[in-house]
Design a binder for these strands. Sequence first.
DNA 1: CCAAAATATAAACGAACGTTCATTTTTAAA
DNA 2: TTTAAAAATGAACGTTCGTTTATATTTTGG
Lengths: 212, 212
Amino acid sequence: MARPVGTKGKDTSERIKACSLRLFAHSGYAAVSMREIALAAGVAPAAIYNHFATKQHILLAILHSHMTELLSAFEKDRPAPSQGAIARLQHFVCFHIDYHSARPDQVFLSYMELRALEAENFQLIEALRRDYEAHLKAILTAGHAEQSMRACDIHVTAMAILAMLTGISGWFRERGRLSQTDIQTIYTDLVLRAAGADHQPVTARSQHSAAG
Amino acid sequence: MARPVGTKGKDTSERIKACSLRLFAHSGYAAVSMREIALAAGVAPAAIYNHFATKQHILLAILHSHMTELLSAFEKDRPAPSQGAIARLQHFVCFHIDYHSARPDQVFLSYMELRALEAENFQLIEALRRDYEAHLKAILTAGHAEQSMRACDIHVTAMAILAMLTGISGWFRERGRLSQTDIQTIYTDLVLRAAGADHQPVTARSQHSAAG
DNA sequence: CCAAAATATAAACGAACGTTCATTTTTAAA
DNA sequence: TTTAAAAATGAACGTTCGTTTATATTTTGG
């Protein structure tokens, strides 16, 4: 066989990326073979090497795309600093939940398979993640300056908030007791509390769930 | 060769577990070979099968030990319910940080390689994790009942608290800016805030770190 | 229009994989 | 003391791994 009619390299490489993402997120980078990826993408194993030098480069491309797209999406329509730190923090929480809940595979991969990257590639992705963290820290710092927030420690609070938010994907299921909007409401409250913000708590929710 | 003098099966199997734990936590379950484990444990690859039926059984044994030991350690010297929900929650935070910071590999493995377990084994470990979550939920529920806490939603708050606490291992480094005691102080404050507890905030810490 | 780049394939490479086997020696139970 | 179980080994099993090679066809730029 040879090259089929009408094939476009860009289409194929995007299909390989998309299929790899799904497989990596489901089974883990090391557990997925190039043959599985090729089968899912509908190409021969050797064809992958026309688009990615190695398996590692597929993972890197996925993670790099995800982080740069996350950053540009956030930077696109965030509120101006003049709107105050509390409004900015509320927006950060809602944006994070919206963006990440629409991309569960990317979330899983970004936080679980970073160690599968070789040192050099790891640092590349890590730097992008620090850029995202910096956005949150900037909000907390602004809140501290304008005295609308009283976080004990900017860095630790930022880490705790991101862990809380990222942890959502570990237990949240659509069609469950709570909608995504419920989650955004509850987490906005939790995060503002963590930041030590003076805010109006939401109307007390009835306790649908008992402990245990 | 054959069986060396003075060999005890229990010693060898514990050594295999310990070496596997370190390797799995560092590289991921799928990325570690039985030959690597054997080399680290100082035995021939085939010897592993005298103690574990398959590679999967090694992972299961590690995770099962960790969860049962965590549960019995917590249940051993927790404060009595009569001491109040706030004291119980403070103890939970300090216990969690102490116990897990002493076992970083187990933490990593427990939260990252659950998916490497086959369905049946997964449910076994998941049930133990829910037992641990239930301890936290019981405290939040007690706090709600005695009106010392005002969490918006017991389940979501418990998940957020555990994510915060578990996330610590992702960024905390000994010999860094903050000691483990600092972390416990800050997180006790963060968690009590998240739980909506009426508590005396700690003396405002100076901001050692700027944002970014 | 034509050469070169791009894109695909089948087949094969050597290496590594999890596991099994036959065998040997030590330990522990009867 | 005899004997079966336990614990170890080196060698090998068939399979799968990531990747390369040789080759064929399509697309595209000058």
